[in-house]
Every structure is written in structure tokens, then in C-alpha cells.
Design a protein around this nucleic acid. Structure first.
Lengths: 181, 181
DNA sequence: CCAGAGTGGAACATCGATGTTCCACTCTGG
DNA sequence: CCAGAGTGGAACATCGATGTTCCACTCTGG
């Protein structure tokens, strides 16, 4: 029954996606064989789920976007002061782990034009409630946040630092950067 | 005379290196043909100067390291307060332009163990003169600086922002992050 | 002008990643 | 047990990047 075996298919697919996030976060040009190996799956099987590299990448973007959206929802950008909401957003995004590295390049680049509208609204609220320095434009704050998150994640994976400690430093620095003089 | 034509050789070599910095900063996996084209040079000629891709990358690292060292020297890390010196360093590094992107990944990663000793001395001076928050370890400040620089450089190349404006935001945010509460 | 350095293009061999095909194997629901 | 889904390995064709060779061309110092 495909309905029953479907569970197995979904599990394999997810294992491949998870492995792809892990492997491609470290090396975006990694061969598919490495992804398959990390997923404990034959290369043949990987191709059965994602015919071409582009198919895998597309699914990956979708998965990353999904997780990103969930994290943003959890941060409740509409509550509290602008700066508090930004803190929560950093916290939630930081927990995305490897997805961060994967998103980093695109995120910084993609948002060149219009930055996320929820994010922008949050920042504008911060201008008004006095928790965010009006000198700092929303797009810049978005770049700032992402680069801090990336630096923090690197700090965790490369140095011998706990996620908690890294998050503390990130929040300390984002706060400092954002607060009006 | 090789001494005379040597000038031509040096010029061609430099043109290739400059092109490589530009091309590989945007796409580290770019084919050598792209680099040759950007340098206005035949692929054959490129191989005449750098037999293998690795040779080009090695020369590139050397060139980048040289420029990085020069920038650090210009920043006179030993003068003024720790925070002022850090400002100058950001300023000098930011002017490296494309070299930034090239160095970024390595820099953040490479300095995992021991971070630059001059940098560390500068930060410790900042702890003592009260211009740098002692809660922030030197390695973290190094990551912070690099990620800010990278974000700023992206901001310039992707959005329609002047280098000057981006630098202002970088310094504003680094200052805010570093200053003790 | 001429010799020789420096160059670019064409052609080629090689290599690794990619994607496909086929077959034998395993595992599970019935 | 048995049918069929799901899988992995081996073998293969293809493709793009790499690196090499060779030859004709240009340019400059003498």
C-alpha cells in the first residue's frame, strides 16, 4: 500500500533533506554522493527522490523557508517593544542552526530590495517606542542581525563555545548596536 | 631582456590576481576561464602564470594577506583608546572591498584558535581604559567586526548605498556593541 | 627591419560530478 | 510464505572544468 509505505518514503525524503542541510551548509559545492552518505542512503536512492541537483536545492530552499517562517511566527514580532521583538527574533533564528549558514548568503542578498514587511513594521514600532535608534534603517538592521547570527553560529561550530554563551553575546551586541545613544 | 619584459610579466600577473579577487569574491567556485576573461587574458596565459588552480589560490591568499597586513599597519592599533583603534581598523579593513568577501570565511574560521595578537592587545587595552566592555572576549569581537564588515560590504554591492554611508552604519553599530553599558 | 618575449586560440586528454539503467536484495503487510 | 515497495551497488554515458601542447600572431628593444 502506497499509503502505508508512504511513511517510509516521507522519512527517507526528510533524512536526505536534513543531511543536505548539514552537508551543504559547510560546503555548498559538496557532491551529491556526500549528501547521500550523510543521509545513510545510496546515491541511487537520492536520485530517486530528487532527480537533479536543482530539485534537491529547490526542496531545500522550501524547507529552509518553512523553518524560517515558523521561527518568525514563534517570535511574535507584533508584541512588546521593537527591540524586545528583535531580541526574540534573533533567539528563534539562532536556534535554526545549520539552516542559518544555508540561508545567510541568500538572505543578505535577496532582501536587497524589499525587506520583510513584518520585520520593517517591528523596526518602525521600535523607532516610535524609543527602543530602536531611528538612524538605523530596517534593511541595515536585517543585515546586521543576519551577520551577527552567522558570526555567532561560526563561533559555536568553530570555537569551543556553548550555544547559550554565543546567543548571550549576540543579544548583548545587537542590543548595544540598536539602542539609541 | 627578461629584466625589461619583466615589467610586462608583473603587470599581467597583477591583472590576473586583481581579476581573481573580483571574480572569486562573488563565486569561489568560478571556473578559471571566467577569471581569465575578467583579466582580459587568454586562459592559456593564465595557466602560464599559475599552472594549477591551487597555485592561483595560494598567490591570492598571499596577496590578500599582504593587503590585510598593510591595512592593519595603517590602523596603528597601538594608539589611542582600544575602541578608537578598533574604529580605525574597521575603517581600513572596509576599504579592502572585494578582498573582504574573499577573506571573510577563512578569517572567521581560521582565527578560531589564537586570534591576532595585535588585535588582542588592542582589546585588552580597551578593557583597561574603559572603552571596551570586558564581557566581550577578543575572539568574539573579531568575529563581530568581520561579520559587520561583510554585512556592510554586501549592503554596498547589493543595495544602492554609498560606501561612506555603509561605513557610518558599521562604525555606529560596532561602537554601540562594544561600549560598556 | 629582426629576434625574441609574450600572448591567444584551437585541439586534445583527463578527471570528477552527474544522472541513468539494471539487477539483486530486504523488508513488510497480507 | 509471497507480492510488491523500497533500496543499494555496479556499470555506463555525458558534461563541464582543468591542464597541456602547439602554432601563429603581436609588440618592442635593438
Amino acid at each position: 500500500m502506497s499509503a502505508i509505505r508512504g511513511g517510509s518514503r516521507a522519512r527517507t525524503r526528510q533524512a536526505i533533506l536534513d543531511a543536505a542541510i548539514e552537508v551543504l551548509a559547510r560546503n555548498p559545492a559538496a557532491p551529491l554522493g556526500d549528501v547521500a552518505a550523510a543521509a545513510d542512503v545510496g546515491r541511487t536512492t537520492l536520485h530517486r527522490y530528487f532527480a537533479e541537483r536543482g530539485d534537491l536545492l529547490a526542496a531545500l530552499r522550501e524547507e529552509a523557508g518553512r523553518r524560517l517562517g515558523e521561527a518568525r511566527d514563534r517570535a511574535r514580532l507584533g508584541d512588546d517593544s521593537g527591540a524586545s521583538a528583535l531580541r526574540r527574533l534573533c533567539q528563534e533564528f539562532f536556534d535554526l542552526g545549520d539552516v542559518l549558514s544555508l540561508l545567510f548568503r541568500e538572505q543578505v542578498a535577496v532582501d536587497g530590495e524589499g525587506c520583510d514587511e513584518n520585520f520593517e513594521a517591528m523596526v518602525r514600532r521600535g523607532y516610535e517606542d524609543g527602543s530602536v535608534d531611528p538612524e538605523l534603517p530596517p534593511i541595515w538592521l536585517q543585515s546586521l542581525m543576519w551577520s551577527q547570527l552567522y558570526a555567532g553560529w561560526h563561533y559555536v561550530t568553530e570555537c569551543q563555545v556553548s550555544r547559550h554563551e554565543a546567543l548571550r553575546l549576540i543579544l548583548r551586541c545587537v542590543d548595544g548596536a540598536v539602542t539609541p545613544r
